[in-house]
Each structure stands twice: as C-alpha cells, then as structure tokens.
Design a protein around this nucleic acid. Sequence first.
DNA 1: CTGAAAGCGCTAACAT
DNA 2: ATGTTAGCGCTTTCAG
Lengths: 339, 339
Amino acid sequence: MGVTIKDVAKAAGTSVSTVSKVLNGHYSISQQTAERVRRVMEELNYYPSASAQSFARGSTRTVAVLADLERGAAFRNPHLFEIVSGLEQTLRGRGYRLFLRGVDAAGAYQAAEEIISRKSADGLAIHVSVLTHPLSALLTRTGFPHIVLGMPNFDSQVCWIDNNNVYSGTVAASFLLSQGYRRIAFIGGQYYDLGSAHRLQGLKEGLQARGCPLDDRYIRLGQSTRADGWAMTDRLLDEKDLPDAIVCANNYIALGCVAAVQERGMGIPEDVGVLTFDDYPFSRFTEPELTVVDIDVRDLGNRAGRHLLELIRRPTLQVQTTVTASNIIERRSTRKKTV
Amino acid sequence: MGVTIKDVAKAAGTSVSTVSKVLNGHYSISQQTAERVRRVMEELNYYPSASAQSFARGSTRTVAVLADLERGAAFRNPHLFEIVSGLEQTLRGRGYRLFLRGVDAAGAYQAAEEIISRKSADGLAIHVSVLTHPLSALLTRTGFPHIVLGMPNFDSQVCWIDNNNVYSGTVAASFLLSQGYRRIAFIGGQYYDLGSAHRLQGLKEGLQARGCPLDDRYIRLGQSTRADGWAMTDRLLDEKDLPDAIVCANNYIALGCVAAVQERGMGIPEDVGVLTFDDYPFSRFTEPELTVVDIDVRDLGNRAGRHLLELIRRPTLQVQTTVTASNIIERRSTRKKTV
DNA sequence: CTGAAAGCGCTAACAT
DNA sequence: ATGTTAGCGCTTTCAG
C-alpha cells in the first residue's frame, strides 16, 4: 500500500485529522502547519486514496452519464459525445469525475436505480433518448440530482436542458433578411421531428416579425435524408415564383438540396442562397461551402455540468431550461452578388 | 443511509460475512442460505455501497480513459468515441466501469500519476495522441495496468493496440484485383501519416503478391484534405495511361477525388473505380456511393477492454498488438460494367 | 488551532 | 458451511 495519511501525519509531527483538514482546506488550520504538512505530502508523494475519501465522506464526486452507446453511436450522433466532453470539462474543473455508462432505453431504469442505490455517483446525466416514463418517475420520486440532456418528448418533471431550436430559427431569419433575401423557403423534417419543427417555427416567427412572412408554398416537409432533401428541393424549384433562398433543417437535407439545385443548372449563391443548421458533418464539404446556424453543443454540456453540480448541492432545485448558443457562420452559399 | 449489509444479515438471520460471501459468489455458501439471503436483499432492496466495496477490496473495478476531449473532438475524431463505446461495452459486461478524463498531452502525465496514486482506477486506457515519453516511462516504471489506444509513434515498451492498416491495404488490393481492376492508383497522405503509409504499404504488398505491382507513377501523396485529393487526382488524370481504379487513403481525399474525376466529365465507376478506407463520414453521401475498406473501430475498443482486464489480472503481461478487423463494403463506385 | 477517536460499509483471514 | 473480527484510509465530531 502506498503512503497514507498516517505516514504524512507522523512525518509532519501532527495528527491525521490535521492532515485531513489541510487536504480539505479547512479554515481552522494555521498557515505554518498547513505549509509544513503540504511540504511533507510533496516529499512523500502523497495522494489521498480516492475510495477511502469517497467512503468516508459518503460521496463520490462523480457523475454518471447514461446514454445509448450502441455500435455506430459515435458516428451517428457525435453531438452526444461533444456534450459529454463539455460536461466532463466542467465537472473536472470543479473536482468531479465523469463515469460513462452505456444503456438502452429498456435498461436505463435499472442502471439508474443501481447507481442511485449503490451511490456510485452523486449525480446523473441522462441522454433523452433513453429517458422513459418509469425512469422519469424514479428521478422525481427519489429526488436524486439529475439532468436530462435534451428536452423530453413527454410531459415530465425531470430537470432537463436543451438547445433552443426556435431561437436558432430566428437567427436564420434575421440573417437572411439582412442579406437581402426575401422569398425564403424551408425544407425539413415532419412535425414529429421536434428539432426541425422548432427551427421552422423560429424561422416563421422571425420572418413574420420583420414583416416578411413565410409563404406556405415554400414549406416542404419530408425525411431527414439526402434523398428527400433532393426531392423537396426539386419540387420547390417547379414553382413559378422561385424562392431566393432555401433554409434546410439539417445537413443531410442540405446535401440533397445543393445537388438538386445544381442539377438544374442553377448556381449557389447566384440563383439561390442555401443555409442550413448545424456545422456538422457536411457543411464545409459541399461546393460552395454552406452558411450555417451553428449550434454550440459543447456549451450545452458545460451548462449541463454547472446545473448538475448545483443540483448536487441543492437537490430541491428544479431546472428546465433551454440554451441559446447559436450563431451564424457565414460562408459562400448565401453570398448574393447584389448586396 | 440506505439499507446496509448488517440489515440484510439481521433480517436473514446470518452474519454479515455470509451476506458478503453471497454477494461475491463465494463457493462455501450453501444453496439454501444463498437463496434466503438473496431473497432478503430483494425484499429490502439492498444494493451494496460501491465506495465501501472499493474501499474494502482495495480495487475500484473502474478503468480510466485518458483522451483529448477538447472542443470539437467528437466531430473531428468520432473514431475515438466509438472505441471508447466499445471499451465501455466490454468492461460493463465484466463488471467494470469506465471513467472518462479529458487531458491534453501536457497534462496526461500528471493525470495518470494522480489516478495511479489515488487508485481511482484499476487500469488506464490512454489515447495515443496524449502519450508522451514521460508518460510512457511512468507506465512501464509503475507497471500499472494500461493499454494505449493506437500505436505509439516512438519506441516504447507500453502496451498498445491498433488497427492493422497494412492489412487493410491488402484487403483493398485483393478486392480490386478480384473485380478486374489492373491499373490501380493510390492517393494519400505523406510518409508521416502512418495510417496512410501503412495502407499504401499493404496495397503495394497485396498487388505485388498477386503479380500486379503498383506503378510508382500512380502514387501521389499530399495532405489529407478534399483540396489535395482533388489536386492529386487531377494530376493523375493527366497521365497518358489512365488508371482504372483510384484508392484513396481516406474519406476527405476521396471527396476531392470524386469531384476531380467528375469535373473532367469522367464517370465513376464507368471510367474509373474509386475505393477508400473507412466508412466515415462521407462514403455514403457521394454520388455514386463509395466502396470502402471499413475499419471496425468498435471492435478495437472491445479488444482493448479484454486486454486491459487481463492486464489487471496479471500486470506482468505485455501486449503490443494490432487488430485485423477490416472488410470490404462494396458500393457502386467500383462496379465495373465489364465483370 | 490541534488532536483523539468514532465511525463509514464492506471484505477476508481466521476460527469454529 | 458459517460466524467473529480486524482492518481498509479517510472524515468529522467533540474536547481541549
């Protein structure tokens, strides 16, 4: 066994409790003593045992993340990992560790129950994709500190945090108007694709507010695929009155949109501007590169961390919040010559 | 405090050590007793305290992952997270947990030292991008169970695991030859891009072995970008003898390659076949979709987990291994009409 | 400001 | 097959 608190105490000529207090920055220790003890720790290369500390204080300084880590998750949903990275960063800065636990929706309840009962973590961050009704109930029933990453799609009293997609939509609106676009179209996912729906809502509100309401003929909904992006765009371009800009709900749709426009021999941005949401994964790999409303998901992770730590401190709090960290990254796809 | 081992013992009319033995599947416990105790645990909803267990056994059943989780990491390097997911899956299956710790190369040594000294984990998985000389020395000096994810680019006695890119290159070679391609070209990164270099080496060896050596004029090296992929391809197509297939070292290069071919009015696969490595992120989003040598990085994570657990059991082992989990995903980009 | 001592909940050696 | 008991290394009253 390595060097323990006793060794330090002996070498420093103090009691273990004094050493412990130095370790924890207890106010009652005199400068001198503290310094001496610290010097000894350094000399002996002492590090307190993590398990002993957790055990003694009854808290682990650890947060568990529950998320679906099935095969391909990192490729299909890198956003999740960016959120986790942000979370880890914040936690680490405050002396907490993050432990990552893969679950599917069916197993999330059990995993959470076990973590709570075994006290293997002081808090829980749960990706919304594995949040179920029973799990939601467990969280509110036990009052265990938690934060759900993403807005639940059912009524729930859990604490959650999510991006503000409505806001992102208004950002798109303001930007396009400021660039002189007026006949703006939207292609996106169906109503049950909340992200897309909210972006559309924000876009509508933003345009409306600036006196340039979105024409219903210019709204097309389909699947979030390249193929549907292509098809929706293609039909859109059959209109007599062509839009002068197309807002795509996401990268996949945008990819199809760009292809459809170009296959008609039309130019981006000369004939029509294209804007999409999220800088990932394709926006810089089309020709021309795409202007995007970028969503800062790492920031979401950071904030989730801060909230969770606060909830650990004061478990009675409730947090249901939405984060407005989106901003325009302007690229060539919306660069009208005539502005 | 929740229910403890004492409560269970009392309720079951046994001693705590019996309960502990049941908990740990000790052989000496009779069927009956074990069953009775288990029933009581169930009734009382007993879960052993994780910290108490860790503390008492002197081991945490936890593995720490050290990796660079800087902003954008999940987007730039999703492979890392897929490896971590695979690792977590394997560990979880064997009763271990994974704790994720962001570090940069400068901080990795300290982080590792702290984890080792505080015993906050029983093993360490370290991404090669943060492996430094001193860290490597620390690992071999302490003999702490570890596995480096990726092959070190310097001489080192650490345990590591990596994909076998040379093998992947031979897979590409066999496939292309089997499809009737004979004038095969390679465009990739410079010599210091080990992944690319190994793939090229494997391709060469594979072609050579089948009596169809790679012509040096057909090898072009540059940066791993779309732009360089385009440029390399463009120059390649200036040759009098055109290649009938182009192997791209990675997706970014492939993207440029496809564009360059098509801008010349040539067709894929009619005029030239295109193959790349790694199914991510673009291979299914070009027109035509690309045939790839897919690298199973999750499998790498799984294996890393198995090795690490074995090293935890027997710390004197040394593992330096490369994994050969690559296979062809055939898509349209290599579908010659004449086969 | 410092120290003595009682746990924290479990494991494991040892005794029976 | 089961029970007794001594720790594991630290935190945290409480007394001084």
